[in-house]
């Protein structure tokens, strides 16, 4: 921690009155201001994370009992035959959701910006509809899509296909289709976030760049590739970090749409972790898994961050 005086510029006149500005005051030390946040983050994040690390090396169970330190939980989790399946599901679910949300979000943002620039009516409506899906709670998202994907003869999609003379699709009972269904539901809900981040980045691009390009006779795809994309690169990367982590942590939409099934076909790491702790009461094993989840999130965030231009901020 540093004292506030270091931030007063060196050439400030050393008159006592010079401190009449806010910077010179006693309450300009940051610590008291930051204290509430530090306390809450310490108690609810740092300490629990350290404790989860500790629990990972115990035999702790949710049902209580004597706790001893051991590597048994670690070994049991890492040799669990279900783990490769779960990690594979997580990779597919996360990668497909992130790519889908980024592309769709980018597409919608470009459409809305183009529409607004040409004063086409209805663009606010489009943006609002996409954002409405975003505020739907995750559990409700799962419930809504379970109705849409319902394999009963009266299910939304299948009965529509039936009207068109197309055979019903086993959206949720076939393992491959169930994963696709979960991804569609997740893209439906999550796209708005990417759209709004990219939309903001697009609006922030200096118009004169396009004017200059127009003078140079740049084609539309050249404008996109050489102005738009480089200008929104940072926003795209930050967005990728955020939605990757959101998707990794997604739990509610999956549990309410498929419950992880059929079998383990859609059981992602967050759901597997939940089941380990709260259905099998294996606190130690769940802690190992939650640390794995955290490490994967940090590793991916670090990976994307490598592509950020240096000296940003």
């Amino acid at each position: 921690m540093t004292s506030s005086s270091s931030s007063v510029s060196a050439d400030a006149v050393p008159r006592p009155d010079a401190k009449a500005g806010l910077m010179g005051q006693a309450q300009s030390h940051p610590l008291p201001w930051l204290m509430p946040v530090i306390v809450v983050i310490g108690a609810f994040y740092l300490y629990p994370i350290l404790d989860a690390l500790r629990l990972a090396f115990t035999n702790a169970s949710l049902t209580g009992g004597e706790e001893v330190y051991s590597l048994a939980a670690l070994r049991a989790v890492l040799t669990n035959p279900a783990l490769p399946t779960v990690l594979g599901n997580t990779a597919i679910f996360t990668a497909a959701s992130v790519v889908g949300q980024m592309l769709l979000g980018l597409g919608i943002a470009l459409l809305v910006v183009r529409g607004e620039r040409n004063s086409l009516p209805g663009m606010l409506v489009l943006r609002t509809i996409v954002l409405a899906a975003w505020v739907v709670p995750g559990v409700a998202n799962g419930v809504i899509w379970s109705m849409l994907f319902s394999e009963a003869p009266f299910g939304a999609i299948n009965s529509t296909l039936g009207l068109m003379g197309i055979a019903p699709v086993s959206w949720l009972s076939s393992p491959q289709n169930a994963m696709i269904s979960v991804i569609i539901a997740n893209i439906w809900q999550g796209t708005a976030f990417s759209m709004i981040v990219i939309y903001a980045a697009l609006k922030g691009i200096d118009e004169t760049l396009y004017e200059a390009a127009a003078v140079d006779g740049a084609l539309p795809w050249e404008r996109f590739a050489f102005i738009t994309l480089p200008q929104i690169k940072v926003a795209l990367l930050i967005n990728a970090i955020l939605i990757t982590i959101q998707t990794l942590n997604t739990f509610d939409a999956v549990i309410s749409l498929t419950g992880g099934g059929p079998g383990r076909a859609t059981e992602v790491l967050s759901l597997f972790t939940y089941n380990t702790v709260f259905n099998n009461f294996d606190l130690a094993g769940g802690s190992v898994l939650s640390i794995v989840l955290l490490v994967i999130a940090l590793a991916l965030a670090g990976l994307y961050a490598l592509f950020l231009p240096r000296g940003e901020k």
């Binding site: 994370i49 967050s270 606190l283």
Partner: peptide, 20 residues
């Protein structure tokens, strides 16, 4: 760092928090 805290899954902190 404060923004990075958001990357922590609720599950990670909830397992120990449940016991506290």
């Amino acid at each position: 760092a404060i923004l990075a805290v958001q990357m922590v899954s609720g599950l990670v902190i909830l397992i120990p928090l449940y016991r506290y």
